[in-house]
């Protein structure tokens, strides 16, 4: 129909910023889902994960800001460290945690 004005195209070409913000939001929601599930059984593990989720949500709102390139490696390192930390905690739980009888459905 109508072509977008030139200045709109320039501020967010290909909607790249918005798509990246949405990708951050999806990542935050993934962490929130994990934290929410763990919160029931292990509140002390669930609360930090929910905290990380909130932090990722906030970082995602900054992700699209122009000139945010300097802090990018640190923000992405936070995600990598958080996922690795969660997986190491999960590994410890499966190897040395209490034996689970399984969920009876």
């Amino acid at each position: 129909m109508t072509t977008p004005a030139e200045d709109i195209e320039d501020t967010d070409p290909g909607m790249a910023r918005e798509r990246t913000e949405l990708a951050w939001t999806r990542t935050a929601v993934s962490f929130a889902a994990l934290g929410g599930v763990i919160l029931r059984g292990h509140p002390y593990a669930g609360i930090p994960i929910l905290g990380v989720s909130a932090l990722i949500w906030q970082l995602g709102r900054l992700a699209g800001a122009p000139g945010a390139g300097r802090s990018r490696p640190r923000r992405l390192l936070l995600i990598a460290v958080a996922v690795t930390g969660v997986s190491l905690a999960a590994l410890a739980l499966t190897l040395i945690g209490p034996e689970s009888g399984g969920l009876r459905i």
Binding site: P13, G14, T20, A23, W24, S30, F31, G69, L76
Partner: peptide, 20 residues
């Protein structure tokens, strides 16, 4: 900026895969 942002999205998608 679009290349940087696409690279960032790829990383975030892999991170969600790892979490899953």
């Amino acid at each position: 900026a679009r290349f940087t942002l696409a690279n960032e999205r790829t990383f975030l998608a892999w991170s969600r895969t790892a979490l899953a």
